[in-house]
C-alpha cells in the first residue's frame, strides 16, 4: 500500500497516464486536463496521487515536463497548470514495444 492505494491501482493509473498522453503525442497536456480525463476511470483519484505518479513517471524518463513560453518562473507554476508530454521511451512503453515490470 502506498498512500492508501494498492499496487494494482497505482499501476493502472500510471498506465492510463501514459495512454492518455499517447493519444495526443507529441502534444503536451496540462495536469488538470489529465486529471479530468482520468476521473472517468478512477472517480476517487486524488490530485495528489496524480502528482505523485507524474513525479514518478518523470523520474523514470517516460514523461517530460514541458515549460511553456509564458512561464516566467517555472517553479512558480501551479501543478495543475504544468504541461506534460510523453518522451520517446514513454512512447515505447505505451505502445508495448518495451516492457516495464513496474507498469505491467
Amino acid at each position: 500500500m502506498a498512500n492508501g492505494r494498492n499496487m494494482a491501482q497505482i499501476k493502472r493509473v500510471r498506465n492510463e497516464i501514459l495512454v492518455a498522453l499517447h493519444v495526443v503525442y507529441p502534444v503536451a497536456m496540462q495536469a488538470d486536463q489529465l486529471l479530468r480525463s482520468l476521473l472517468v476511470l478512477f472517480p476517487t483519484l486524488d490530485f495528489d496521487h496524480l502528482k505523485r505518479d507524474l513525479h514518478y513517471l518523470c523520474e523514470k524518463g517516460y514523461v517530460l515536463r514541458v515549460e511553456a513560453e509564458s512561464e516566467s518562473a517555472t517553479y512558480m507554476t501551479p501543478w495543475r497548470r504544468r504541461w506534460f508530454r510523453l518522451t520517446s521511451s514513454g512512447l515505447e512503453i505505451a505502445e508495448h514495444c518495451v516492457k516495464d515490470p513496474a507498469l505491467d
Binding site: V24, V27, A28, M29, Q33, R36, S37, L39, V66, E69
Partner: peptide, 19 residues
C-alpha cells in the same frame, strides 16, 4: 503558436474522452 496548439488538443481530448 505551440501553446495554443497544445491547449486545443488538450481541450479536445479532455472534453471528448470524459464524454
Amino acid at each position: 503558436d505551440r501553446r495554443a496548439y497544445w491547449m486545443l488538443v488538450g481541450l479536445v481530448y479532455e472534453r471528448i474522452a470524459t464524454n
